[in-house]
C-alpha cells in the first residue's frame, strides 16, 4: 500500500513541479501515470525512492514514512522499492548475471559485492527470475551485447531481485520498438499479478496504458486531473491532459532533463 499525501516538489525558486499531489495505490494493482512531458510524472516516481528529494508532503509505503529518512534508514527503504528506467540503466561492461545480482547490493556486504560472492539463495533467485523472463541463457554475456527488449528484461529482473514491495517503472517502453514494448508491458502486468506486487508505470503511450493497466492516473502541471479505470478514460480526459500541448510523444528526454536540473539544484 502506497500513500502519497500533499506531495510538493520545487526545483530551486521555480514554480513547483508537483503541487500537492495525492495518490494511493493498494494491493497488486498496475497503475499507469500519463501526462505530457514536464507534467511531473518522472519527478513523482523519483520522489518515492528519493532519487529526487521532495520539498514537502508525505509518502508512506505499507505504513512506513519515506520522506525525511536519512543514511542507512533510507537505503533500507530503497531495497523495498524496485525501479525500472527508460534507458535500462544497466552496467554495460558487466555480465547479465552481475547486473541482476546488483539488485542485491542493499543486502550483501561490501566484500561480497567486491568479490562477487553472493549467497546461494540470491543466485537461485536470480536464475529463477531470469528463466521466468527468458534471459537465463544470457547469464554470462555482457549486458551491452543484448537487444533493447532483453536489456529491459534484465533491468526488470534486477528490480525484482530486491524483493520489492512496489515496482516503479519510468517510461519502461519508450526506448523500445512497438512490439517489444508490448511484450514488456505484458510482462510487467503478469509479474504484478503473480507476485501480487503494486506497479506504477509512467507511460506516454495511452493505448498501452489502456490495454495493460488496471487504473490510469492523468497528470498535468504537477496536479492529478484524472484518476479512474481505463474504460472511463475518454476523449475528454485525454484533452484535459494533453489539450493545447503539441505532440506529447515527441520529447522523451524528460527524465534526463530533470535529473540534470536536480544535479544543478
Amino acid at each position: 500500500m502506497l500513500e502519497i499525501t500533499n506531495l510538493v516538489k520545487r526545483y530551486g525558486r521555480n514554480d513547483p513541479v508537483l503541487k500537492g499531489l495525492n495518490l494511493s495505490v493498494d494491493g497488486s494493482s498496475v497503475v499507469s501515470i500519463v501526462g505530457a512531458s514536464g507534467a511531473g510524472k518522472s519527478t513523482m516516481l523519483r520522489c518515492i525512492n528519493r532519487l529526487v528529494e521532495p520539498t514537502s508532503g508525505s509518502i508512506k509505503l505499507n505504513g512506513h514514512e519515506l520522506v525525511n529518512l536519512r543514511g542507512s534508514e533510507l537505503r533500507h527503504s530503497r531495497r523495498r522499492i524496485g525501479m525500472v528506467f527508460q534507458g535500462f540503466n544497466l552496467i554495460d561492461r558487466l555480465t547479465v548475471m552481475e547486473n541482476v545480482l546488483s539488485g542485491r547490493l542493499g543486502y550483501v556486504s561490501f566484500f561480497q559485492a567486491l568479490t562477487r560472492r553472493f549467497p546461494q539463495t540470491d543466485i537461485n533467485r536470480a536464475f529463477n527470475l531470469m528463466e521466468r523472463v527468458g534471459i537465463a541463457h544470457y547469464a554470462n554475456k555482457r549486458a551491452d551485447q543484448l537487444s533493447g527488449g532483453e536489456r529491459q528484461r534484465v533491468a526488470v529482473v534486477r528490480a525484482l531481485m530486491q524483493e520489492p514491495e512496489i515496482l516503479l517503472a519510468d517510461e519502461p517502453t519508450a526506448s523500445l520498438d512497438p512490439k517489444t514494448s508490448q511484450q514488456i508491458m505484458r510482462l510487467l502486468q503478469t509479474l504484478a499479478s503473480e507476485m501480487s506486487l503494486p506497479v506504477l508505470i509512467n507511460i506516454h503511450n495511452v493505448t498501452q496504458a489502456r490495454m495493460y493497466t488496471d487504473r490510469i492516473v492523468g497528470m498535468r502541471h504537477g496536479q492529478m486531473i484524472f484518476d479512474g479505470a481505463p474504460k472511463d478514460f475518454n476523449q475528454d480526459a485525454l484533452d484535459a491532459i494533453y489539450g493545447g500541448i503539441e505532440s506529447p510523444e515527441e520529447d522523451s528526454g524528460e527524465p534526463q532533463h530533470q535529473t540534470a536540473q536536480e544535479a544543478l539544484a
Binding site: 542507512s72 537505503r75 530503497r78 547490493l105
Partner: peptide, 16 residues
C-alpha cells in the same frame, strides 16, 4: 542512479 535505487551504499555504488 539505478544502483542508488537498489539501496546500495555509496561505496557499493562506486564499485558497481
Amino acid at each position: 542512479e539505478a544502483m542508488e535505487a537498489t539501496g546500495a551504499s555509496k561505496m557499493k555504488v562506486v564499485l558497481y
